[in-house]
């Protein structure tokens, strides 16, 4: 369990993290999503005792990092894959970490094997690709067989095989009952691995909710239709109702590419309406809800609220939720 409570971190005049509160429970993958510079890495650095919080606290298993008796068994982290000495071999790097954290040296060979670096164990890290360094960093995080894992952008620089491998590893680790906290600025990646999302922007919490709830609350599946007779079709669609009075209201709005975006009707229903009206249809497809769109809507709403009123981000988020 990782706990972040009213965490604020300022570097000089810049506020990297602003009154952030959330929890990361065990047994699921918690995604930490936000644009670059949103404060994700800073939050992780405070969690791992590297940076001192200005206010608030970040705890691992209820304790600040420095107070954990055997930190390597409690939490393993990959923060920056390139933060290794290029002149050392992969094996020596891990051996030093194992010795420092009181982990049996037999674990070094085990984790090297687990991340697929057994062959390169005696090679100097300077010759490693970024993908190999990411694997080495993950090996270091797994060294103490920890109850919690913190990965900062773990798929950066990985090839397709590596990306698939990380996804599986992250899922497996959570499946074993561990606490898994993964940051990314790639929304598509989060959608594939995370069960729960903590979304931040400009150091503030935007959302802390299960993945499907985030997608459902902030975006809707829509039907996009392209036609040369847009005005007529829009009128007919507006009058249509899918299944009696209890069905959702139909909303039609023009899309960016000249198409109509229809909420409340399936492509089949839109096609039927068009057919009945004698309207020519050139394109007709379902626009699936995605984290990407949810995220864009979310950050837009947050920006509008921030610009509109000097409201606290927490309330702005709640209001945005109702609005959506």
């Amino acid at each position: 369990m990782l706990t972040v409570r009213h965490l604020t971190k300022r570097y000089g005049g810049t506020t990297a993290v602003d009154d952030l509160t959330f929890e990361v429970p065990p047994g699921r993958v918690t995604g930490f999503l936000g644009p670059n510079g949103a404060g994700k890495s800073t939050t992780m650095r405070v969690l791992l005792g590297l940076d001192r919080p200005t206010c608030g606290e970040a705890l691992v298993g209820g304790r600040p990092y420095a107070a954990i008796p055997e930190p390597a068994r409690e939490v393993g982290a990959l923060l920056d894959a390139s933060a290794v000495h290029p002149g050392r071999s992969a094996r020596a790097h891990l051996l030093a970490l194992a010795r420092g954290s009181g982990v049996a040296r037999t674990r070094v060979a085990e984790v090297l094997e687990a991340v697929g670096l057994a062959e390169a164990a005696r090679k100097r890290i300077g010759g490693f690709s970024l993908g190999m360094r990411q694997r080495l960093g993950i090996a270091g995080a797994l060294l103490g067989d920890p109850a919690a894992l913190v990965f900062d952008e773990p798929v950066n620089g990985l090839d397709m095989d590596g990306v698939l491998w990380v996804r599986r590893l992250v899922r497996d680790l959570a499946g074993e009952g561990r606490t898994v906290f993964v940051s990314s600025h790639l929304m598509s990646e989060m959608q594939l691995v995370a069960d729960h999302l903590v979304v931040v922007a400009a150091g503030r919490l935007l959302v802390d909710a299960p993945m499907d709830e985030v997608i459902a609350a902030w975006s809707h599946t829509r039907t996009a239709v392209r036609t040369p007779d847009a005005a007529l079709l829009a009128e007919r669609l507006g009058a249509a109702r899918a299944g009696g009075d209890r069905a959702p209201e139909v909303e039609v709005e023009p899309g960016a590419g000249g198409e109509l975006l229809v909420r409340g009707l399936t492509p089949e229903q839109v096609g039927d309406v068009a057919h009945a009206a004698g309207v020519r249809v050139h394109t007709l497809y379902r626009e699936e809800a995605s984290l990407e769109r949810a995220y864009l809507e979310l950050t837009e709403t947050a920006e509008e609220f921030a610009a509109g009123a000097s409201d606290r981000p927490g309330r702005a988020t709640a209001a945005a939720k109702e609005h959506a």
Partner: peptide, 18 residues
């Protein structure tokens, strides 16, 4: 100073936080 140049100080302080 080597670990400040490479930033490896972060892994060192994770292994030994004191």
């Amino acid at each position: 100073t080597g670990e400040y140049a490479t930033r490896a100080i972060t892994t060192t302080l994770q292994a030994v936080p004191r």
